[in-house]
Write a protein that binds this DNA or RNA. Structure first.
Lengths: 94, 94
DNA sequence: GTAATGTGCAACTTGTCGGTTGCACTCTAG
DNA sequence: CTAGAGTGCAACCGACAAGTTGCACATTAC
């Protein structure tokens, strides 16, 4: 029983992190500072979320000069699709 | 953006609850007291988990005399399948 | 070189979660 | 009718997560 599941579901359990995933899916790439403009919290909080997502293998970071750009991994992109499908699924059932 | 997703992912984020889902899938039905034999915690803790799963719509309860039997809902059964598939998926990637 | 931008780390606060204990209630068995 | 089995509710505790603030470090701009 892989406890990667713990990390993944733990990461996905937070609405802010799911939002980050959606945003990264739309924008392709973003820094913590950029994302801070989209969420009602400080840069450090966003940064923590990104770290959590990275630990779960849903996001990867690349340091470019003084900035760190984040993008979805393959697994992260797959989850973005699943989340969209699930939202639709729940919407239709209503 | 349905916050049912919060409930579902929140429920799924806990290993014990995923275990309960697996157990209910295998057994078909169980009471809190029965499940207590399978998990290293008290009946009340198990009961709380079942309530959480019920709130997320993954499990439903039926009171029969002095006992309360729990079973997977349609959605709960679907998630059991997805979890199995995901575990396999993660296993193969290793 | 110096100021500004972008980041990371650490300490702290607050709220929630998983779990326990204690008790009252309901139902069945005999 | 009474003992025991099965449950539910509420209060409590410890741990951890989300978020904040403060500061030091690295990089670019001028």
């Amino acid at each position: 029983m892989p406890d990667s599941l713990n990390l993944v579901f733990g990461a996905l359990a937070d609405p802010s992190r799911r939002q980050v995933i959606g945003y990264l899916s739309a924008r392709g790439t973003a820094t913590a500072t950029e994302l801070t403009g989209q969420l009602p919290m400080t840069r450090q909080a966003v940064s923590k979320h990104l770290t959590t997502l990275a630990d779960a293998g849903l996001v990867e970071a690349e340091r470019l000069g003084r900035e760190t750009r984040y993008r979805l991994t393959r697994a992260g992109a797959e989850w973005d699709d699943r989340l969209d499908a699930l939202a639709q699924h729940l919407e239709r059932r209503r």
